[in-house]
């Protein structure tokens, strides 16, 4: 799992790549908490375009950061969400608590979706 972050205008964007499960939950939590504390008044956007798997351990990290941010009036959003990740977020009710946008293929013509 790797994280790459960019800080621009009012937001911290963290591009995550790899599976979000028991193995990667702790390093992801530490990385996100570090950024949340370092840039105190920005919103957090998690870019999940390179994530194909999330389970409850990964969701725990996402929802835990959401709670922490909203307690201090900050917001959080998810982008680049692929179908297998979407179905887990949907079942857990995440779609109704924060903005979530789906993955858009880089080359839609080749993917046959014009």
């Amino acid at each position: 799992m790797t994280f790459v972050h960019t800080v621009q205008a009012g937001r911290i964007t963290v591009a995550v790549s790899g599976d979000l499960d028991l193995k990667t939950a702790a390093p992801l939590r530490e990385a996100l908490d570090g950024l949340i504390n370092r840039y105190p008044d920005r919103q957090l956007v998690l870019d999940l375009a390179e994530v194909d798997f999330v389970d409850s351990s990964g969701l725990g990290v996402i929802l835990g950061r959401y709670r922490k941010l909203s307690a201090s009036g900050r917001s959080m959003a998810l982008s680049g969400v692929k179908p297998p990740v979407w179905m887990v977020l949907e079942l857990a009710g995440v779609l109704s608590i924060m903005p979530v946008s789906e993955y858009l293929p880089r080359n839609p013509v080749r993917d046959g979706r014009a």
Binding site: D21, L22, F53, D55, S56, S57, P83, P84, M87, V88
Partner: peptide, 20 residues
């Protein structure tokens, strides 16, 4: 393919519980 994704999540949950 979608069934397999769901099976993966269920197995991941049961095994994670055993580990944790």
């Amino acid at each position: 393919v979608n069934d397999l994704e769901e099976i993966k999540v269920a197995v991941s949950e049961a095994v994670s519980n055993a580990v944790v």
